[in-house]
């Protein structure tokens, strides 16, 4: 068994179809919906944490892609652009769970497994080096 976070993007024509159900029925996957929304262009986005056998997860992802659904592996809903980050530390001020912290040599480190997705770091970053994936 393994657990994985994936971000699904549904094109306009797929929105409304019960694709995720197939993951349960055919591929025996458990999932947790972490975030879901449909934008103004009726494109859907779904952030799932899926649990199952590795081969089933891979087959499920292939199935989704065959149905024109974008699948992206996600570690965390925020990403730090290392080219923009200067390790000032302003983001660590608002990260209550220590997902963003300074190392002993004062570089910024991002422990993406600790992130609670409050998104305050996105606002706190003066370099705008942190962006939300969804």
């Amino acid at each position: 068994m393994m657990t994985k976070k994936i971000l699904l993007s549904f094109p306009q024509k797929s929105a409304g179809q019960p694709m995720a159900m197939e993951l349960i029925k055919t591929y025996h996957l458990d999932f947790n919906i972490l975030k879901a929304f449909i934008d103004d262009n009726i494109k859907g986005t779904l952030l799932l944490e899926i649990k199952g056998e590795e081969a089933d997860i891979e087959a499920g992802i292939v199935f989704l892609r065959q149905n024109q659904i974008g699948v992206k592996d996600i570690q965390s809903v925020v990403e730090v652009d290392e080219n923009k980050c200067v390790s000032c530390g302003a983001c660590t001020a608002v990260c209550a769970v220590g997902a963003l912290e300074m190392t002993a040599d004062w570089s910024l480190v991002h422990h993406d497994d600790k992130c609670l997705e409050c998104m305050l770091c996105v606002k706190a970053c003066p370099m705008r080096a942190i962006h939300a994936v969804i």
């Binding site: 200067v86 390790s87 000032c88 530390g89 302003a90 660590t92 001020a93 300074m102 004062w106």
Partner: peptide
């Protein structure tokens, strides 16, 4: 109370 820097010591070094 947690303390956080705002200027980059890494870049200063």
């Amino acid at each position: 109370i947690k303390t956080s820097p705002l200027s980059s010591l890494k870049m200063a070094r």
